[in-house]
Amino acid sequence: GALYEVFEPAEARRIATKLEIHYTPKHGSWLNMVESELSVLVRQCLQRRIPNIETLEKQVSAWECDRNINQVRVDWRFRTEDARVKLSKIYPTPQN
């Protein structure tokens, strides 16, 4: 919708067709989840010298395929209540 507010409809549509939208998870910190996955990728797949880009692509693809087949998920357990305790200096105390 924002594109149509700024551009003429034809231009907005042209730009919109080039965009690839990725929805982020509704729960947990998606950035932390991505960082965790990248850490696992490095430890399980990339902690060695890889001679060329083709080998890298094959290794990462095989790793990704294995993760998907095994349906690896992030078990996010850091809830808002936990955050309020751990980050009490940041969260305001409710006033009654």
Rank of each mutant, 00 (worst) to 15 (best):
C45K: 00
E11F: 06
N68L: 14
L56R: 02
S61E: 10
T17A: 12
E20F: 12
I69S: 08
I90K: 14
I21M: 05
V72C: 12
H27N: 15
N52W: 02
S36N: 15
H27P: 04
E64T: 11
S36W: 09
I53Y: 00
Q59Y: 03
V72Y: 03
N96L: 09
E11M: 10
C65M: 13
A83F: 08
K89L: 11
P51W: 00
F78D: 14
Y23I: 01
S61Q: 09
A2G: 10
S36C: 12
E11D: 07
V74E: 02
V72Q: 10
W30F: 06
R79N: 14
D66H: 12
A10Q: 07
K58N: 09
L41W: 00
V42L: 11
K18C: 10
A10I: 10
T93D: 06
K89Y: 11
Q71H: 14
P92M: 09
V72T: 11
F7K: 08
G28T: 09
E54M: 01
N70Y: 03
T93I: 15
S36Y: 01
N70F: 03
E57G: 09
C65G: 03
E5Q: 11
Y23E: 06
A10P: 06
P25G: 06
W63F: 13
C65I: 01
W30S: 01
C65L: 13
E54V: 00
R73Q: 13
A2I: 08
S29N: 05
E54G: 05
Q95W: 02
L56I: 01
K58I: 01
T24H: 13
I69M: 12
G1P: 09
G1V: 02
V85W: 08
V74W: 01
Y4Q: 02
D82F: 10
V6R: 07
E64F: 09
E37F: 10
L46Q: 01
W30M: 03
P25K: 04
I50E: 08
K89Q: 09
E35F: 03
